[in-house]
Every structure is written in C-alpha cells, then in structure tokens.
Design a protein around this nucleic acid. Structure first.
Lengths: 206, 206
DNA sequence: TGCACGCTGCGACTAAAGTCACTCGCCGGG
DNA sequence: CCCGGCGAGTGACTTTAGTCGCAGCGTGCA
C-alpha cells in the first residue's frame, strides 16, 4: 500500500531516459535540476522545461502508458524519487485529491508549452533572448548602482537550446543588445542597464 | 448533484472565448468543430489544435482556475455541452476514474503540443507543409490512377495558421512541390503523385 | 450583367535565421 | 610550462521567412 518509491542518483549530464523510451514511472526531484528536451536529427536541441527540487518529470506517460515524448537529462548532480507507473495509478485512485493535484501540475506544464509555441511562432530570437533576460532580472537579479546584475544559467550553447536556436545567434544578439546600451556583457555576467528598454523589445511588431 | 450541463450553440467563425478570459468551465463538443489558437499582436495566428465531436476544450484551466491560455472559435456551426468548473471538479472527486481519464486527455494534448514545438523549432515551412500533406494522404486520401487525391481542409490562410506561417509561403511551397513533380495542385484539390518523395522531405537535414 | 469580395498566384524586395570557418582567451592536466 | 579543449566572438555568406503590392479569377448577389 505505501507508495513503493525508489531513490536514484544521476551525475551531471547523465540521461534519465530518451524520447521514445517506454514509460516506467514517475520521477520526483529531491535534489538537483533536470532538463526536459527534444533533439533533432541534425543535432539541434529544444529545451521544453527545467525542473528543480520538488518538481516532477514524466507525469504524462504515466497515465496514457505511451512512450516518453521527450528526453530528460540531469543539469547537475541530482537525487530522484522514482515511483512505478502502477503504484502511482492506484495511489491516485485511492486519493482523488492527488489526481486533481496532478492535473494542476500537468496543466501548468501545458501552459508553459503553449508559451513556448507562442514565442517560437511569433517572436524573433532577439525577442526571445530579451525575454529571458527580463525574466532573470526580475527573479534573481541583484540591483546594483548602474543596473541589475544577472548571470546566465549556463553556456551560450545551452541558452541557445532553450531559445530554440544556435550558439552564434545568442552571442551576436547579446553583443547587439550591448551595442544598443541596453545591457553590459562580461562573459556570463550581465548587467541590465535599461530594463524598460529591454522590455520594450518584447512587443515590437516590426 | 447530476452534472449540471448546459447546451450551447455557436455559428461558424464565432468565438467561444479569448485568450486571457477567466475560465468558466469545461466545453464538450457534441457536433461541429472547434479551433484552439493563439494570436499575436501583429495579426498572426498559430493553431494549437482542432477538435471534433467528442473532443473537449479548455480542460486545463478547469483545474488550476487560471485564465484560458488560448482562444477558441468554431470552424463550423457547432453544438457544445458546457459544464461549470465546480460541478466538474466535484464530479471528478466523486469518480476518480474520470479524473484519470481527464489526465489521459490532457496528456494527449500535451503530446500534440510537444509535436508542434518540435516542428516549429526543427522544421522548415516546406517540411511542415509536406508533413500535413502526408498526414492527409494517409488518413483521408483517395487512391486514384495517377496518385492519391486529397483536399485541403480550409483556405491557404487557414493552413498557414496551422503551420505557423503566412499565406504566401503556403502558396509558394505548394507551387514548388508541384514544380518538383511531387504533387498536382488544382485550387484546394491536391493529387499526391510521389508519396515517398514527399515523405523524404520530412527528414532531410540540409 | 456586372460589380464586389474573397482566395489565390506572383514578383521583387527586406529581414531574419542559420552555416562555415576561423581566432582568441581561459583553464586544467600532463 | 606547454598543450588541448572548450566557450566565446566574429566576418562572410547562403538560405529561409516574411512583407508589399498587385493582378487574375471565380462566386454570389444586386
């Protein structure tokens, strides 16, 4: 009866499973950070979500039994709680409020995916980049004398994967924002000098 | 106690609700066809899904109470069964298996969204177009002497919205496929002459 | 009959995205 | 100390996407 959970550990960069693999069960993050992503034949990647402690991964195939629609890897060393498909199903049937909770979680993920679709089909790389910079500035930005200091979560390559583009465009667009006086770039540390100006980029139709 | 459902009717093109509206409840399609879509400031649209009879719409905000993430309009005259948010919630709590069913439905939608993201970030307009042609040929295509006859579900404009692009590109790419001898275009009726060739477009990395 | 409107086909153009091929600087291991 | 690898910057180029403006065509309706 007690949820039969198994503890698992993954090292940085390790793959939990790949797109297309049959679904074994639900993964809950105890410690660390996971990256859900799609990869293309030509080596490109598109990150769908990054989940931290308390988050879960692969909720959906648990319910329809179909294979995983995307791959998941560990961004950093992580500890995972694993619950098999059947155990979780019966747990949901016994506790309907848990099922509703799951619906809320899946709903939130759905919203984020819709957001990604919106950005991919309506926004330029420049706008998407500005978008993450604004988000970073608003959440983990440190107010300094001359602006807000933020720091990129990973390499340009990784950021490119999140934006659905390539490294060079990230680099170039960052430089362009700097040339326009909106930000100051020093490697991975960025100072946002003109947040309103940066925000204005988000809804410029031209 | 019995699920308090209301019948509603919508004419062709009518809007059921817009992105950002507060969520009232769940919509189930009795007859007709609904289109879930996002629209941008500059008038562009991206179709997220088209649902037919038996399908439902706006499942997710029912559970988290947040506003609708996208807009929904009727593609053709439609009859809808509407269930208010609270009625449906309590119904789910009383019948856990219904909640699980909903999870499966939402899961399927999630899968489709992931598919859209994949196409948007990895595939060209040409490939996406070829993709829908192949899908149409495989589902509702009529085998004729010289090929498979299919017919576009709507105008080029509408198809463009589904592909996340503009009318002209649909027109041009169709013409190009014709020039290459893969299809024959006569207005909205298309004859697929070389299905393997068309399929080959889908995974050409260059 | 003919006019208006919606759908489609182009041509020419601009802009954005992506590719290739390199250079440079930094850091860590041999 | 030198080397190798990785991340980053950059110029030049190709390809794809998107924009603008307009012409042709059919259908329906006055």
């Amino acid at each position: 009866m007690g949820a039969h959970a198994v503890r698992k550990s993954y090292g940085q960069g390790e793959l939990l499973f790949s797109e297309g693999d049959p679904c074994k069960g639900l993964h809950i993050i105890v410690r660390g950070k996971l990256r859900i992503f799609k990869s293309s034949a030509s080596g490109r990647e598109q990150v769908l979500a990054v989940e931290g402690p308390g988050g879960s991964v692969a909720e959906l195939p648990v319910f329809d039994g179909a294979p995983y629609p995307a791959s998941v890897s560990a961004v950093e060393d992580s500890q995972i709680l694993f619950i098999s498909r059947n155990d979780f199903r019966s747990f949901c049937l016994a506790h309907p409020e848990v099922a509703l909770k799951m619906l809320a979680v899946v709903g939130a993920r759905l919203r984020r995916l819709v957001g990604i679709i919106e950005e991919l089909s309506f926004a330029t790389v420049r706008q998407r980049l500005a978008s993450v910079l604004v988000r970073l500035a608003q959440t983990e930005g440190k107010r300094m004398g001359d602006g807000i200091e933020i720091q990129l979560p990973g390499t340009h390559q990784e950021l490119a994967h999140q934006l659905g583009t390539v490294r060079e465009l990230v680099s170039r667009n960052l430089m362009r924002l700097q040339a326009e006086g909106l930000v100051e770039v020093e490697a991975r540390n960025i100072t946002v000098l003109d947040l309103p100006g940066l925000t204005a980029i988000l809804d410029s139709s031209s």
